[in-house]
Design a protein around this nucleic acid. Structure first.
Length: 292
DNA sequence: AGTGTATCCTGCAGGC
DNA sequence: TGCCTGCAGGATACAC
C-alpha cells in the first residue's frame, strides 16, 4: 500500500489528533508486527508522551519524550487510526475522528483521555518498533534522500542513478537509493518522464535524470494533494480512502488507452512485480548493451 | 552488483 | 455455491 503520499496524508491527519498525548497503556493483539518482545516493547512506550508526528520515506514516526521514536512501517495494508474508546453519548461520532472500526488491529496504544491509536494491518507485513534516537538516526542514514527535499538536485539524482545498472523501476523502489517510492509512483513517474521501466538507471543522461526527479516530485505532490491512492485497503486517519486512484495514468491500467497517445498500456513483470507503461511513449532504446 | 524466487499474511477477483 | 489460482501500495533473505 502505502507509499510516501499515503504516509504523508496519514501523518497530517494524525498530528492534530495525537500530538501531545500520553501513552497510558498498550494492547498487542498481534505481537508478530513487533521486532521486540511484547513485554519490553510495552515497557519502552508506556508512560511516554507523543511530542511530534513525522515521516521518513514510507515510515510514520511518532517522536516520544525521553529520546525514543516509534517507527511504524505500514507495509502493504497498514494504517494508523485514532479512535474514540467510548462513543460520545448523543450526537453521533466526533467530527474529526475515524468512526469505522479497525478490522485487523495489531497494536493498540491507549492514550490518555478518550483516545486509542490503533495500528490496523490486515496482512501484517507492517511493523512497529520503539527505537532510541541514535538507533533511528543510524537506520535513517542508510536510507536514500527524501524525493521532496529541495536540497536534492537534479545533478545529485543523476549521480546516484549513474552508480547503478538496475532497471529504473527497480532503482526507484529501493529505499536505500531514494526513500518513499513504491510501485505505483515509480510507474507513474516513469510514464511522465517517458522512460521505459526497464531502462538501466545509469543509462539516464543528466536531462533525463532531472526530468525523472521533476516527474517524481510532480506525481508525489499531486497524490498528496488528493490524499493518496486507494486501490483497496488504504485509509487515512479518518478512515477515508484517498482520491488519486482515478488520476493514475498507467498503474493498473493494462490494456486501457494511454492518456497521451491512446496506445494500450502494457504490463510486464520483473523484479517480482508488475510494471505498467505505454510502449509508444516510453520506448525501450533496445539496442543491445543499452545503458552500459 | 543484479535478478529470480520464496517468505511473511489475508482477501478478493476471476475461471470453472 | 464452492474450489482453485493468481495477484496485491512492502521488505528481506537466499542461491546463482
Amino acid at each position: 500500500m502505502p507509499e510516501l503520499p499515503e504516509a504523508e496524508t496519514l501523518v497530517r491527519g494524525l498530528r492534530p489528533a495525537i500530538q501531545g498525548a500520553k501513552i497510558a497503556g498498550v494492547r498487542i493483539p498481534h505481537p508478530d508486527v513487533l521486532r521486540a518482545p511484547p513485554r519490553s516493547f510495552g515497557a519502552a512506550v508506556r508512560g511516554r508522551t507523543i511530542t511530534e508526528v513525522g515521516r521518513r520515506g514510507k515510515n510514520v514516526l511518532l517522536l516520544l519524550d525521553g529520546d525514543r521514536i516509534l517507527v511504524v512501517n505500514l507495509g502493504m495494508t497498514g494504517t494508523l487510526l485514532p479512535l474514540l474508546r467510548r462513543k460520545p453519548g448523543a450526537g453521533g461520532a466526533a467530527p474529526d475522528l475515524a468512526d469505522p472500526r479497525p478490522t485487523h488491529p495489531a497494536v493498540v496504544f491507549q492514550l490518555d483521555g478518550n483516545l486509542d491509536l490503533v495500528f490496523d494491518d490486515t496482512r501484517r507485513f507492517g511493523s512497529v518498533e520503539c527505537l532510541s534516537r541514535a538507533a533511528w538516526e543510524e537506520r535513517s542514514s542508510r536510507m536514500g534522500p527524501e524525493p521532496l527535499d529541495p536540497d536534492l538536485t537534479g545533478a545529485d539524482f543523476h549521480a546516484r542513478l549513474a552508480r547503478s545498472r538496475a532497471p529504473l523501476r527497480s532503482w526507484l523502489l529501493d529505499q536505500k537509493r531514494i526513500a518513499g517510492v513504491g510501485n505505483i509512483y515509480a510507474n507513474e513517474a516513469l510514464f511522465l518522464s517517458r522512460l521505459h521501466p526497464r531502462r538501466r538507471a545509469r543509462s539516464a543522461d543528466p536531462q533525463e535524470a532531472a526530468l525523472l526527479l521533476t516527474s517524481l516530485r510532480k506525481v508525489l505532490r499531486e497524490a498528496i494533494h488528493r490524499g493518496g491512492t486507494t486501490i483497496r485497503d488504504y485509509r487515512n486517519a479518518l478512515g477515508e480512502p484517498g482520491g488519486f486512484a482515478r488520476h493514475l495514468r498507467v498503474y493498473g491500467r493494462e490494456g486501457l488507452p494511454c492518456s497521451s497517445c491512446t496506445t494500450p498500456v502494457e504490463r510486464i513483470s520483473f523484479g517480482g512485480r508488475s510494471a505498467f507503461f505505454c510502449p509508444a511513449c516510453q520506448p525501450m532504446p533496445s539496442v543491445r548493451g543499452e545503458g552500459t
